[in-house]
Design a protein around this nucleic acid. Structure first.
Length: 676
DNA sequence: GGCTGACTAAACAGCT
DNA sequence: CAGCTGTTTAGTCAGC
């Protein structure tokens, strides 16, 4: 306790005493800690910093666009006919909020999955990437063009309004369209950035940190190396640009215009003759996407197969117009939407973090094996791989503002709803703030199932497992061959199974000891080699037995929360499936330890799940920790559909940990490798 | 508002 | 004496 943890504990304590109390305790503590340990930014490596930089560039670009729009509107309203009524509620003023919500996030789960799963690009993948990249460039060109038209359109409409007298309905419509346009802009930016990142991750694209962000200058931002251009030409030479069918961008219908301009983001790209300002290729879209969109000239990232793809929505929209109406009506700028954006943001952020960590691991592995980065796998990461270890600190320091709003990125593993008893859902990835409650088996969350499903995630992502210490300790003991562990072995299990527990050792070890002593279910047994801890299942099951069993309201809540969250998950899953991205599941992990875990699941199910009867008997995601979307303060209560926050909601300190030095802490906690 | 569970922090004692 | 282990207490938060 006096080792690294000793100082930790003391400094933490002082931080708490000095600054915080109440519900903000942990947050403040976290910030204090972070401020204090600023010198040793843990997870961030050069790659992450780079990523952040790219994101910042995108953000800046977006900011400029946003400001332009706002200025335009303000100018129009100041110089034009005064319509104070309309100004009273200026929807456009809300735009920045939603924009701010969404901007920092640029990588979709699909993209990150792809990156995670594919370190090396096949030629086909390279082609696809190139195509996508090129398409995105064009899309942004189009967007640029459309942006101008949008402004003209706005002016036109305002003039019409001025001449026709005050027509209260029109202004909101314009504003709505403006908002829609900004959303489209966002999506475009995100898409482009996804592909940029993808290319960058694959080493195909190098973005220098100092590269200026040029607002709405996609070709500058997405400038690709000459060889990439060459590759691209080779790739695209096979396709004649016969789809250059022109565009309808001159339409006065803003909605239509918006649609047609945004549509290319994923569809066969219609080359806008006005957009090719740089003379950059008249190319079309990637093949793989053109298929489904040919029949849907109006395609939208949030629309597909007649269904709204907004996370958690899945509303059926007969046509694109109805979808747009639906989008503007149901997914307007409100708390729910912004919160959902946050969910998506954190999904992305966690994936980014995970990617960064995996890269770091890869680098460490390569270093260990004396493999130079000239290998195919290493080559794509000239910057990140080679420098990630040594430069991680400086890189993170170089961009201290990176991801400022969610430094902790508490997230959850991605487990497909459709694949068995996944426990953790993507919707649970957004919790920010002090969360005290954890899942225990008594809450119908089979911990072993969750761990099994998301083992790799927990191992790599510094995410606090959503289970109580007691549950985790029990799991550790039950996983052991003899169903008993020494304290140190329990420690080792924690550190081995959860990246989160590779730091803050003093805190959680103290908690472990505390729990071992506190709970009757943990029995200390004197052994030859000292004391070992075992689990008294009877005692364990006794814990709060009234929680679930025979409580219809709870059961109902669980069901409703299930119903609430499932669409969200499904939507996210669907979006992932859309790109045929392999999911981060046990199926793709193939971890040999899963067998043990699976058996533990069965054991556990036979025990704890008896209390719940049929509710969780199937593999439905209902067991998944649910999280409601709350814009400001989200709480973790899986059983409450209103504020279900998901199991992975983390205490903010999780990733703010003080003195976090991942490697050091981990070394301090040697893993007992003979555990299994 | 009280009860309870969970978490965190801390103090303390015993042992190695 | 340092460090680990184990126990206990206290404060806080959140759900019921």
């Amino acid at each position: 306790m006096m080792q690294e943890s000793g100082t930790e504990t003391k400094s933490n304590g002082s931080a708490i005493q000095n600054g915080s109390s109440g519900s903000n305790h942990l947050l403040q503590c976290a910030s204090l800690r972070e401020g204090r340990s600023n010198g040793e930014t843990p997870a961030a490596d050069a790659g992450a910093a780079e990523l952040v930089h790219v994101q910042q560039q995108q953000e800046q670009a977006l900011q400029v666009a946003r400001q332009l729009l706002l200025q335009q509107q303000q100018q129009q309203q100041v110089s034009g006919l005064k319509s104070p009524k309309r100004n009273d509620k200026q929807p456009a003023l809300q735009v920045p909020v939603s924009v701010a919500m969404m901007t920092p996030q640029v990588i979709t789960p699909q993209q990150m999955q792809q990156i995670l799963q594919q370190q090396v690009l096949s030629p086909q993948q390279l082609q696809v990437l190139l195509q996508q990249q090129q398409a995105l460039m064009l899309q942004q060109q189009q967007l640029q063009e459309f942006y101008k038209k949008q402004q003209e359109q706005l002016q036109l409409q305002l003039l019409q309004q001025q001449h026709a007298g005050k027509q209260p309905k029109e202004q909101p419509q314009v504003a709505t369209q403006q908002l829609a346009f900004q959303q489209q802009l966002l999506q475009m930016q995100q898409l482009q950035q996804q592909h940029l990142l993808s290319l960058q991750r694959q080493g195909l694209l190098t973005i220098q940190p100092g590269q200026p962000a040029l607002p709405l200058q996609p070709l500058a931002q997405g400038m690709i190396p000459t060889e990439l251009q060459q590759l691209w030409k080779e790739v695209t030479s096979a396709h004649s640009a016969e789809e250059t069918t022109g565009s309808n961008h001159s339409s006065l219908d803003l909605t239509t215009t918006c649609v047609s301009s945004s549509a290319p983001s994923k569809t066969s790209l219609i080359m806008n003759p006005h957009a090719s300002t740089n003379g950059q290729l008249s190319v079309h879209a990637p093949k793989r996407e053109s298929l489904s969109h040919e029949e849907h000239p109006h395609s939208h990232p949030l629309y597909g197969h007649g269904v709204c793809k907004w996370p958690g929505c899945e509303a059926v929209c007969e046509d694109f117009q109805s979808f747009l109406k639906h989008l503007n009506s149901e997914h307007a700028l409100d708390d729910r939407s912004t919160a959902q954006c946050r969910v998506q943001m954190q999904v992305v952020q966690q994936l980014e973090l995970q990617l960064a960590k995996d890269k770091e691991r890869l680098q460490a592995m390569m270093t260990h094996l004396h493999v130079k980065s000239t290998e195919p796998k290493a080559a794509p990461q000239p910057l990140n791989l080679v420098s990630s270890v040594t430069l991680s600190k400086s890189a993170s320091e170089a961009s201290p503002q990176s991801l400022p709003h969610t430094p902790t990125t508490p997230t959850a593993p991605i487990t497909p709803v459709t694949q068995g008893p996944s426990v953790i859902t993507t919707t649970s990835m957004h919790t920010v703030g002090p969360i005290r409650r954890r899942y225990s088996d008594k809450y119908n969350v089979p911990i072993s199932s969750d761990i099994a499903q998301n083992q790799e995630f927990y191992k790599n992502a510094e995410v606090r497992p959503p289970f109580t210490y007691a549950s985790l300790i029990r799991q550790a003991i039950l996983e052991s061959p003899e169903k008993q562990l020494t304290l140190n072995e329990i420690y080792n299990w924690f550190t081995r199974m959860f990246a989160y527990f590779r730091r803050n050792a003093a805190t959680w070890k103290n908690a472990v000891r505390h729990n071992l002593s506190l709970h009757k279910c943990f029995v200390r047994v004197e052994n030859v080699k000292g004391a070992v801890w075992t689990v008294d299942e009877v005692e364990f099951q006794k814990r709060r037995p009234q929680k679930i069993s025979g409580n219809p309201s709870l059961i109902k809540n669980m069901q409703s929360s299930h119903a609430y969250c499932t669409p969200l998950n499904a939507a996210l899953q669907a979006s992932m499936a859309e790109n045929s991205i392999p999911l981060y599941t046990t199926a793709s992990m193939g971890n040999p330890t899963l067998g043990n875990l699976a058996s533990a699941i069965r054991e556990e199910l036979n025990g704890a799940m008896e209390h719940t009867n049929s509710n969780e008997s199937d593999s439905s995601p209902g067991r998944s920790p649910m999280q409601a979307v709350h814009p400001v303060h989200v709480k973790e209560e899986p059983l409450d559909p209103e504020e279900a926050e998901g199991p992975l909601s983390l205490v903010t300190t999780a990733n703010h940990s003080p003195d976090f030095d991942h490697d050091r802490d981990y070394e301090d906690e040697p893993v007992n490798e003979d555990m299994e």
